[in-house]
Design a protein around this nucleic acid. Structure first.
Lengths: 324, 324
DNA sequence: CTGAAAGCGCTTACAG
DNA sequence: CTGAAAGCGCTTACAG
């Protein structure tokens, strides 16, 4: 039925092993033979059989992508965006993508170990960091290759990871506001967990004190209230929408009374006015780089683990304004 | 290195073919032998080799999931949600998931045909409908098995598909509003394309005229304006947020002056107040059923193509109110 | 530069 | 109910 390497070999008048070598473009084969074989593949409409190739070579050419073990978290646009970018980058190198999802770390771990033990994947890209994660520990202790998108705080030196510079992101928000003459700025968050918060907040603090400005920390909840601030740095776009709602209720206008700068540049930033001034964290590059680094890791079989910092971009929109 | 069927066979004192039969729980094998073999598998920590199994059996036990050929569309929470549900349902039947993404129909088609010709998947689940789609036509004309989530208007009888009853969704929105004494209702949309719009609108129209109410159709744009309406049925949650912004600008209050009912029950419905009264379209069941129907299709090898209608749920929140 | 052969780890008629 | 054998479609030392 399906045409195989043998059919091609016969048609081209060579041995199957030669066809196999042409497929991987081996430098051992003469150009003349390559041309001949390629023509035969064309004529016959040959496609390789992935399973046979995997079985014979021991390489799956597939990456497992691990989503965070929380349902609503993974419905954020970030995850679909990065999955798309991972898939597209992988495809360029003839690599497929498998996915691992689950509601708990245990469930995830089980799925991850199955994917690997059944030899469906060569390794993984983890799409979340978090203080401690049993999936990550599992991979680490079993010597299974993986890279991580985010910053695994307690394991930075042992895990190849890709992230934005969240501290710089914190500083930059301050810089932009300070240059517009804001002196009284609060950092607003609804969670104090995770390295993303920690780093952005730390950057915020450093830059504020470097400039001698008055800083406040505000945890967002029902009692959210602004006192003397003229600008807010908000942890993410969704939270920014909620913050702005509260501000409006309290009679403040954004950006006339209060400027808001936020992070992630998701779709939430451009639904209602004022559109959000935000930082684009370049999810596309985050995903593409994760794939590249993973492939390099596989190749080199080394224990060398670097961090790659993906640049961000400031997106100036309506929620920020200079203070007279 | 990895333990194989042979190792298990030796340990259990049987032939490899027997182990293979135990793995698929063949009824030919005696319980006694099964127990013995299973113990050996346990002791040795056996995992099947997916590639070998695929190669020998000709079945990949993998479903390809096809995302719509538009970037921003696929970043909607719907897609990640349904992917998760598909993956989880598939896993219960030992099925894996591969994904196909692309920016254009051509790109998608290429990827889809590659997945199939390399025998990486047994078939596909398409996550979008649309008037005409070359990917769908490609699968159809090549006899490649697939099911579709949505309603392929011009091919309903030839494609197994899973959808909500969008017409009923249109009628139900009217019913809820009418029962709260609203008589003047508009249907608001930002697109007039797609069967989702068409059906919801048709249901809206039918129920309105059945009740003898005054209906309006409003295309949402910069000039969006309400005249005598007391209630709006809005195509989706995101649009509802934009609509409410405009209403606020024009001095209307939701729900005191105007009630809003919308669709999809995405995260967008509970970010800012008033939280949206909306219909949950049950994405989890949509995905799970797609998997089930696909598997049935594979088994039966029939040309019988049914539609499965997934029930929805009314989510009463703050944007709707009775009219005195 | 190319061929012949063994092998990857399963499944599945065929026999008994 | 179980075994022996062929075969799935590739890859890769080994030889020449």
């Amino acid at each position: 039925m399906a045409v195989t390497i043998k059919d091609v070999a016969k048609k081209a008048g060579v041995n199957a092993s030669t066809v196999s070598r042409v497929i991987k473009d081996s430098s051992e084969i003469s150009e003349k033979t390559k041309t001949k074989v390629r023509k035969a593949m064309q004529d016959l409409g040959y496609s390789r059989n992935a399973a046979a190739q995997i079985l014979a070579s021991g390489k799956t050419n597939t990456i497992g992508v691990i989503f965070p073990p929380v349902v609503d978290k993974s419905s954020q646009p970030f995850f679909m965006k990065i999955l798309t970018s991972i898939n597209e980058t992988a495809r360029e190198s003839q690599i497929s993508v498998a996915i691992a999802t689950g509601h708990t770390q245990e469930e995830l771990k089980k799925q991850v170990s199955l994917l690997y033990s059944e030899k469906r994947v060569d390794g993984f890209i983890i799409l979340y960091a978090g203080k401690s994660d049993s999936v990550r520990e599992y991979l680490l202790s079993n010597g299974i290759p993986f890279v991580l998108v985010g910053t695994p705080t307690d394991r930075q030196n042992e895990i190849t990871h890709i992230d934005n510079d969240n501290k710089l992101l914190g500083r930059e928000a301050v810089r932009h506001l300070a240059e517009l003459n804001h002196k009284n700025i609060a950092f607003v968050t609804d969670t104090t967990e995770g390295e993303v918060f920690e780093e952005r907040y730390q950057g915020f603090m450093e830059e504020m004190s470097r400039r001698g400005l008055t800083r406040t920390f505000v945890k967002f909840d029902k009692n959210f209230k602004i006192v003397r601030e003229t600008a807010l740095v908000v942890m993410d776009d969704i939270l920014a929408l909620k913050v702005m709602e509260k501000l409006t209720e309290q009679g403040f206008s954004v950006p006339d009374d209060i400027s808001v700068v936020t992070y992630n540049n998701s779709v939430f930033g451009t639904i209602i006015h004022p559109f959000l001034t935000t930082f684009d964290i370049n999810v596309g590059r985050l995903g593409a780089t994760a794939v590249e680094k993973f492939l390099a890791l596989l190749d080199e079989k080394t224990d060398y683990h670097e961090k790659t910092v993906i640049p961000f971009e400031f997106i100036l929109r309506e929620s920020m304004k200079a203070r007279e």
